[in-house]
Design a protein around this nucleic acid. Structure first.
Lengths: 240, 240
DNA sequence: AAATAAGAGTGGTGTAAACAAAATTTTGTG
DNA sequence: CACAAAATTTTGTTTACACCACTCTTATTT
């Protein structure tokens, strides 16, 4: 269970072990975990190491603690969202087959608005990518994305046939951390309607999304429109 | 700066101190913090205590760490969203004056769908509240909310003139932790249109929101429609 | 029988120390 | 001067311990 000679940290091994118990149902919602001292004694490790494992799982929403009582499994721990996912990842997670049709790919000088969002100087270069994205071959969204040339000098059209998030996490040392979105409604125009198999003036979601690294550095800014007849937007927000 | 005799934990005092340095601009985006050992020595506290403070700030998105280099201030640390906010809190945070008009308030036996969302038995009792909510006296959303009678036996109409989230956090021991939302577009009906100062068939956002405690226990389920001509929905998602 | 006190168990906070791993700086050598 | 090795500095992991605050059960007292 716990291998002290492993290259992986002990607290990480314990984390994965507890996650697995939850996944298999051996630990159910509301169940009380063994106490920190019990874990420490059982595996011959320090209580602080156990605490680190449990603290991480609390931060990730799997567990919660109550002083004087114990640590417990959250009700939703096994069905909580996986957090921020790119379109490709999102489709896979709900069991749909994602695909992308790159409508255009070119290097441009960014507009004032995009420059501001990406925190780069106006007229700096960025890749502009227009994509139609499909779930199980049904078109659900049209996107125009901007990616700073300075961050992704090697960016190519191929990347957008696959998952950009996966590419970005490979290329950059720092992982993707979060995104912020502005959502409003609108009517679909004639051109976009035909691409999305909609009638003109059907309602759409218009979303502006900016994605950031843990450093706070923006890595993409995307305008998109969603046909919500075939797609429901799901978001989760954490308090404080 | 650090008061060892304070009732407040040392790590918490250090957290607040560092947050303040960021807020006042003494620590700017990308700046490197003093090392953990420096902090420990300077304030005569243990390095592990310093680590706890910094770890918490990393989790909250204020800082990020790089092994061998140091701890740094995130670019966005001073302008990150406050996370999940109720309508009242949200309006205050953007400087608008929130108000509520309670259209109806009664105890009902919940429908199958609501029972499922609130994880209570079908036909269990809950308070049903219909509200029109305004920002700076402009109507922006219509809500029908359900609140389990078992959790809030004392719930009264007055609560909904104010902020329900504030009431819930006072009443319950466990704090509100997160919410999940399903968002889609629709056209507004005749009745709702008049209440929201809209024309029939204007586009709206239809949102189903369920709010949970850290235990995973649902405390409210709300159907709402938003007139996004006067209101933009803002969400933030964290990765992993 | 009810109220109180004591004890045991839980997570919360804090210390001191050691070594590992990664990045940087200094030093030594050719 | 340029390059490599060594030392230093950083965060990362882990241990062992001590005491506090809170919750619950049990024993004692009233």
């Amino acid at each position: 269970m716990i291998d002290k000679d492993s290259a992986l940290p002990i607290y990480y091994q314990l984390e994965e072990y507890i996650k697995q118990l939850i996944a298999t149902g051996e630990l159910q919602s509301g169940d009380c975990l063994p106490s920190e001292r019990e874990y420490a004694e059982q595996y011959g490790i320090s209580r602080m190491t156990v605490r680190q494992a449990i603290s991480n799982l609390v931060n990730e929403g799997y567990l919660y603690r109550q002083r004087g009582k114990g640590s417990f499994v959250s009700n939703k721990s096994n069905e909580r969202s996986k957090g921020l996912l790119g379109f490709t990842e999102q489709m896979i997670s709900i069991g749909a087959k994602p695909s992308s049709e790159v409508l255009s790919f070119k290097k441009v000088n960014v507009t004032e608005e995009v420059a501001k969002k990406l925190e780069i100087t106006e007229n700096a270069e960025a890749f502009e990518v227009k994509r139609l994205r499909l779930a199980d071959d049904v078109p659900v969204t049209l996107e125009i994305g901007y990616f700073p040339e300075a961050l992704f000098p090697e960016l190519s059209k191929n990347v957008f046939q696959e998952s950009f998030y996966a590419y970005a996490e490979e290329t950059l040392e720092n992982k993707i951390d979060y995104c912020s979105q502005i959502i409003k409604t609108d009517f679909v125009g004639k051109k976009d309607a035909s691409k999305l198999d909609m009638k003109k003036n059907d309602p759409i979601l218009r979303i502006e999304r900016c994605t950031y690294l843990a450093t706070g550095e923006p890595i993409e800014f995307v305008y998109s429109i969603y046909a919500t007849s075939s797609y429901k937007l799901y978001t989760e927000m954490k308090r404080k």
